[in-house]
């Protein structure tokens, strides 16, 4: 059984004409020990979804099961108990500003009545684990953004939760700090076995640490699967927008431009090649041009590294002569390169 099971979840804010349907019929399973990404643009409903997991938001209908417990049916007291199994970190860190790092990490332990000395010891261990062993007495105002998020992570892990929910946890951080926080999350996932749910609007965060991803668009799950699969073969428009954020505008501009900058013979149709880790390091396009003796125009190219393997997209404009273009398609198929026609 999956650690987190969400079935037919709906969440509506308000009622009548003013009702906002934040989530509609969302179902997904998150397995024990995985890092699961939930990605979507602002307002897609992903923050509401993650808040329905620990019931900071109560679902309008549907069920949420965490570690076998039906969250909506728990009593107030049982729910508080269950929340200690679910750590959460936030974009704005949400540290207690009047408590130092040690006291912040101790806070959830105080809530569950752990004796002070034991709580202090555990808090110190956790701060050492996140690399802040030398800042125990520092107040949040004295820490950088990345350090604050590390304190928040230590605090979220204090009660040994099974799940760590990350709500846009790196969105307020610069790229270098983001990288180090993601690295930390990945290490904690490996060393502690904690299941991590990552909410983000950035594909690079998902690529960096997630094994599976769900794409949320317009309050629904548009697409869900292995990160490589979604990255290489995005099916829906929402997925394409997220995977290839800069593609849409560029290609549109390219096609509409009557005076195409491509050489005359390269004004044919556009195809998009997807490279998986196997084929990325081969000079496919150069090989094709050399073996067929006809030029192509590279309109767009991008590579990403997912779990150490290199993946890439390249959009080519094929020669205007249909016969040559067809030859190229056949050549690519023979080489085992998957491609799709672009509109």
């Amino acid at each position: 059984m999956a650690l987190i099971e969400i079935k037919n979840l709906c969440k509506t804010f308000g009622s009548g004409d003013g009702a906002v349907h934040a989530l509609e019929d969302v179902s997904l399973d998150i397995e024990q020990g995985e890092i699961f990404g939930i990605i979507g643009l602002s307002g897609a409903g992903k923050s509401t979804l993650v808040r329905c997991i620990n019931l900071l938001e109560r679902p309008t209908s549907g069920t949420v099961t965490v570690d076998g417990a039906d969250m909506c049916r728990l009593s107030e007291r049982e729910l508080r108990q269950q929340r200690r199994e679910i750590g959460m970190i936030f974009q704005s860190f949400n540290l207690l500003m009047q408590r130092n790092a040690l006291a912040n990490v101790r806070f959830p332990l105080e809530l569950s009545g752990v004796p002070r000395a034991e709580a202090n010891k555990r808090a110190q261990e956790l701060l050492e684990l996140v690399g802040l062993g030398d800042r125990l007495r520092a107040y949040p105002a004295q820490l950088s953004g990345g350090q604050k998020q590390r304190v928040a992570i230590a605090r979220a892990l204090a009660t040994n939760p099974k799940v760590l929910l990350c709500d846009e946890a790196t969105s307020a951080l610069d790229p270098t700090t983001t990288e180090s926080i993601l690295e930390l999350l990945k290490n904690l996932n490996r060393s502690l076995g904690v299941t991590v749910v990552v909410i983000t609007h950035e594909m690079r965060v998902v690529e960096r640490i997630c094994s599976r991803v769900a794409i949320i668009a317009d309050s629904r799950i548009a697409e869900m699967g292995e990160v490589q699969e979604v990255f290489l073969h995005p099916q829906t428009e929402a997925a394409k927008k997220l995977v290839l954020p800069s593609r849409a505008g560029k290609l549109e501009g390219f096609v509409r431009d009557g005076e195409s900058r491509a050489v005359d013979e390269c004004r044919g149709s556009l195809i998009r090649l997807a490279f998986d880790g196997e084929t990325t390091d081969r000079p496919i396009i150069a090989d094709m041009i050399l073996s067929l003796g006809a030029p192509v125009s590279i309109v767009y190219a991008d590579t990403r590294s997912i779990e150490g393997r290199l993946y890439g997209h390249t959009v080519l404009q094929l020669p205007s002569e249909p016969e040559t273009a067809e030859k190229m398609r056949r050549w690519l198929t023979n080489q085992g390169i998957s491609f799709t026609e672009e509109e």
Binding site: R80, R83, F90, N94, F107, L111, R155
Partner: peptide, 22 residues
């Protein structure tokens, strides 16, 4: 900050604990 209150609720704080400790 509402976020801090939300965070304490996510850690399983009761209303009384939020008032007294946050």
């Amino acid at each position: 900050d509402r976020g801090v209150i939300e965070a304490s609720r996510s850690m399983g704080a009761s209303v009384w604990q939020v008032v007294v400790k946050v």
